[in-house]
């Protein structure tokens, strides 16, 4: 039950950070972080698909409401949820994940796994987001550089937040 509350709080906090803080940040008009996807990354392993996809969709729509881009972030976040399902089904064994680790955090899964997980999901999300936003081949160089630099920024923020909040507790 407590994990439900934790996730609701996390949802609200991440949307607020994205809408009021990160929206104003852009390094050389190229690199803009989208930390809000951390919510989807950190959902528990056992989240049923029937819940995961609506949550991703609602998260995307809430961000869209603040960015005035209806559907854009929702589409990218739903894709992110799909990639998450695929990635987890490939890398995590069902039996072990059920009882020992509830959430995919940096502390429970280790740095290497979490880094690959965050990087791959962020790349998919950002690539889809930036290309859907521009929707033109004419600016492809520019879009790609925005995509790469922004992904770098987002992954950096995700790892920093991981080290801040989800360090392995020393026994």
């Amino acid at each position: 039950m407590s994990s439900v509350i934790v996730n609701i709080v996390r949802f609200i906090v991440l949307v607020f950070i994205q809408a009021f803080l990160l929206k104003n940040i852009a390094v050389y008009d190229l690199s803009t972080p989208f930390l809000y996807i951390l919510f989807v990354l950190l959902l528990p392993f056992q989240t049923p698909n029937l819940l995961l996809f609506p949550l991703a969709f609602v998260l995307g729509l809430s961000i869209d409401a603040f960015y005035d881009t209806p559907g854009l972030h929702a589409a990218a976040t739903v894709l992110l949820a799909f990639v998450r399902v695929a990635f987890i089904s490939i890398t995590v064994q069902k039996e072990s994940s059920d009882n020992t680790v509830p959430e995919p955090t940096i502390g429970s899964m280790g740095f290497r796994w979490f880094f690959t997980y965050a990087a791959i999901l962020t790349l998919f999300h950002h690539f889809f987001l930036f290309n859907l936003e521009v929707f033109s081949w004419n600016e492809i160089e520019y879009t790609l550089s925005r995509f790469l630099l922004s992904s770098l920024f987002t992954v950096f923020l995700i790892l920093v937040s991981g080290f801040l909040f989800f360090r392995k507790k020393k026994v």
Binding site: F53, A56, T69, L72, A75, V78, F82
Partner: peptide, 21 residues
């Protein structure tokens, strides 16, 4: 294959909103 079908449904809906905005 629920993940795939759910993905199709929600992705379709998002893109519908995006295109028709």
């Amino acid at each position: 294959y629920s993940a795939f079908f759910l993905f199709l449904i929600f992705e379709g809906f998002s893109l519908y909103i995006f295109v028709n905005y």
